[in-house]
Design a protein around this nucleic acid. Sequence first.
DNA 1: ACAGAAGCTTA
DNA 2: GTAAGCTTCTGTT
Length: 996
Amino acid sequence: MKKGDHLFLVDGSGYIFRAYHALPPLTRKSDGLPVGAVSGFCNMLWKLMQDARNTDVGVTPTHLAVIFDYSSKTFRNELYPEYKANRSAPPEDLIPQFGLIRQATKAFDLPCIEMEGFEADDLIATYCRLAREAGADATIISSDKDLMQLVGPAVSMYDPMKDKEIKIPEVIEKWGVPPEKMIDLQALTGDSIDNVPGVPGIGPKTAALLLEQFGDLDTLLARAGEIKQEKRREAIIANAEKARISRLLVTLKDDVPNVEPLEDFVLQPPNGPKLIAFLKALEFTTLTRRVAEASGTDAAEVEAAVVKVELGDAAHGPDVGAGDSVPTSALRGGRPEGAGGGEAASTPAGASPPTPLRGEGDTPQTLAAARAETAASMPFDVKSYTCIRDIAELYRWMDEARDAGVVAFDTETTSLDPMQAELCGFSIATAPGRAAYVPVGHKNGVGDLLGGGLVENQIPIRDALAALKPLLEDPSVLKVAQNLKYDLVVMNRHGIDVRPYDDTMLLSYVVDGGASTSHGMDALSEKWLGHKPIAFKDVSGSGKSFQTFDMVDLERATCYAAEDADVTLRLWLVLKPRLVAKGLVSVYERLERPLVPVLSNMEQRGISIDRQILSRLSGELAQNAARIEDEIYALVGERINIGSPKQLGDILFGRMGLPGGSKTKTGQWSTSAQLLEDLAAEGHELPRKIVDWRQLTKLKSTYTDALPGFVNPETGRVHTSYALASTTTGRLSSSDPNLQNIPVRTAEGRKIRTAFVAEPGHRLISADYSQIELRVLAHVADIPQLKKAFSEGADIHAITASEMFNVPVAGMPSEIRRRAKAINFGIIYGISAFGLANQLSIPREEASDYIKRYFERFPGIRDYIEETKEFARREGYVETIFGRRIHYPEIRSPNPSVRAFNERASTNARLQGTAADIIRRAMIRMDAALVAAELDAVRMLLQVHDELIFEAREEDVELAIPVIREVMENAAMPAVSMSVPLSVDARAAHNWDEAH
DNA sequence: ACAGAAGCTTA
DNA sequence: GTAAGCTTCTGTT
């Protein structure tokens, strides 16, 4: 072996265990004897060997060996008799697979390595060392954390089941420590599976923290007395010896004697017929075909090998054939490869007769009432749903939907992020109780992880979508979905549009805005249908047991997915009439529904970020934060966790006795920035440093470190997700990542904005409304002075100050203007003397006096606030000028503080909600206006409440800006003619910072 | 693994 | 004083 060579070491024992346990329980049981792990293992080996011949692939093995555990007794048992003592025998159905995997390895003509007294991990460690010393690289095919200590510049790991490489950064990401500290970390945490004791009560997070603080295990144990947390300190002192033994147990032995020379591992082309004989014996038809194609062998000519299966003795030696043997086919019950999972239930003919939605006589009102009644009262029967696996049946359902004229539609995918989600299937409902699921991308368990492996008898995705597309785009059929934007992004990516449509989430948002906390389907179903649908996590699991939807067996998938469509259709039947009854149709049709494709497009476009800028910033922030950290430690005298407000409070106000500390509601000392700033102003050194440290670490963790992880690998851009129905006021919200709170206030923070960039040859255009909420206030409250000021383009805060304090605008002290500005914002937020006093750091009496004076000068605003409260109390809601209703069910609460809160929120909601409606109207019209100006290439990317960000070709910028301003400034028209002009500032630049 | 609190970012 | 979302810490399950 020489420099440039690449050794692959497959952790055979680890692989089979992991593959077995990764199978969902249902699939495993119904499959009789799973050879899924063996199939997955063969697929994986084959793929690795294919890559070796494909020089386009970056990492290609020149040497390969598969390593196994020999037996359970190793040198570690001498050290610690309890090692692996509580490990139970492998599950019965797993036992035969150990032998099969060894046989598979031999069928591939690959070295099958094991040694008595040593674990596979020790052999792997030894071969890694040998490869390293020869100047070669090594890749360990495993994801076992016990092996991560081996990772280094020349050694990486590869998780074949997640198709993920594990190098130094990945180890740090997962465990918080670099590979060379993994041994110390494991010594502290122990391992319950292997019965490595560790220190009780110390988990990976704490261990990483301690190692970060003390450097390594020996230092930690020597200086354990310095640990601040009592419980932790005691635990470590008491268990120091256990930690030392644990370290011996988890340290891999990289000098196992008498190992095979690496030269024996040189990768040879596989022996086609020999391999095929084995694969045929196990009925791995797909892989048999692939191998036959690749090796130019006629598979039909090859006779299946006789494969014996060991029963009994599980992780045992090379003498295959010991114990009773039976042919595999007998054990596998003759099932074809990978036929895991139950067959989905199909509807018995004649069950649940469809209630047609078209063709009923009667008046619209009684019809609607009858439909709503049916929808709410008819029981749910998830067993009655159909799983469509036949193209002719799918076409019959498409016809049925077309006849009904309304169809509920839902997609099932592998991810919450619609830009990365893969379609698993879709469901439709044509009448209450009549729904079906069409699986198109469900996979078998581990058996087919690397390449294909679709569950059999699914309609090919192309064919299914070809049948679906005409229905989704049929102008005479209404499609109903819950949160359609998600499904729209997914379907758009498959070249399918959806129109016309209704969205039950948005119907609920318009009908019940403010009254329901969530407009999610489960909540709506319980509220309107009195039915609790199957929870997603009951189908897909959560946490460790989570599996993507494509791994869910078809029966359960059908129950879940078809029920969602059924629920959606019934919700529509209930909610649509209520929309009409409450006179909210135009709010829904003008402000909500049309925004769905607009946002879908914005999300799909995404925005470019410059990762280099972020990574440079991240480095700078880390350095500066580390410097401040050291200064803080020096001032405090010990290495506290600065990120812990609890520890910080104890030090600042407890031990150091700084003044002015107030308590939060849980009895902790408050360490808010405001309070620390005050202390800093009094000349204390430490609070200033803490504030600075917090700013730097916040910028680093939330922005510079997190944003690059959101870059979509296919598009190279960041695609946020906008929620249409998550705020009470009508604003949008942004998440994953939130692009509505990118820093702007400080110079340091603004640097992050420079990383949001336009494509080459393009510019970002930022257009934002100036003082939109104050303008709305001036309009709705009809305040002459404010209207005049806005019409003249005057400085509104200065005018306010001038009115209140009788000082001329010219030469006004900035402090006076600042106070007026705070009052103006206070008004928008539903002012209180308490809040204003806090904001301005003045006594409450003084704040109260300001407010009084303000209302004397602007009596119209006091009237407006009083009218709003009265209306809200009487009706239980307030309205924006476009008729959006926002409910405040608690406004009549007997609790004065709850009531006061609702009063403030409702006065604010009219203003914030109206402003939100205005920018929604602008967004809805924007595309058409740009197209009309032949600016189709100008793309709206982001919305930040009062700002829109566009990307435009350089040559389009000049023309685009006036079009954008025009649309935004006239967005209220013609529904409302505002008595105050709206004003928009727009600017173009290469990055968001300069454009803003 | 999850939930709540505290803190910080935006409009 | 309004409206959001994300990270870290902390304690519980």
